[in-house]
Amino acid sequence: MGASAHAPTAVAAVNDDAFKDIARGRIAVWWFLASEIMVFGGFITCYVLFRYAHGGWEDAARHVNWKLGAVNTVVLLTSSLTMILAHHAVKVGDKQGVKTFLGLTIALGLTFLVIKGFEYHAEFAEGFTPLSGLFWSFYFLMTGLHGLHLLVGIIINLSLLVMALRGTIWACGDRVELGGLYWHFVDVVWIFLFPLLYLT
């Protein structure tokens, strides 16, 4: 009885040693991102295997607008830059910089979604829907899910911007880093979706 009463304390001590140098928020976000890697990784794997198995998707893939996709790629890469600059501004105590770069990141995220909206509109107008074939099912599923993730990132950045405007962000500046990890992950997903859906 006495030994078992001490067991939880011993376990806690071991865990504290293992994680003492890592901010718990970063572990939590990376853990969440690991589950996201499996979600997008699963879809990408299915897409590659289905395409390998069935072939003939080139004709469908020719209808996506690679020029708008390329513009969106640059928009998202630039938003990753402004996000990391917002994080850097927090680190160096640049109050105006935090607001400016978070605002730019939100604006670039919204730009991406608006361009994606124009793409969807044109594709629907041409008669391509998620039911138009396997390629289109995958296309709308993966880009739609990615867009939803971007929307969540925009909401996170909006809440960070409100905190920056109120001056309360300095008490918990690491939240910009955590929000940034999520934002960069969404960028990494697009880095693979763009060639997968637009260039091959």
């Binding site: 853990w31 890697i37 499996m38 699963g42």
Partner: peptide, 16 residues
């Protein structure tokens, strides 16, 4: 980052 974060990031990539 530390080895733990690398492991958390790498394991799902290896899995898929």
């Amino acid at each position: 980052e530390t080895l733990i974060i690398h492991a958390i990031a790498l394991i799902p990539i290896l899995l898929f």
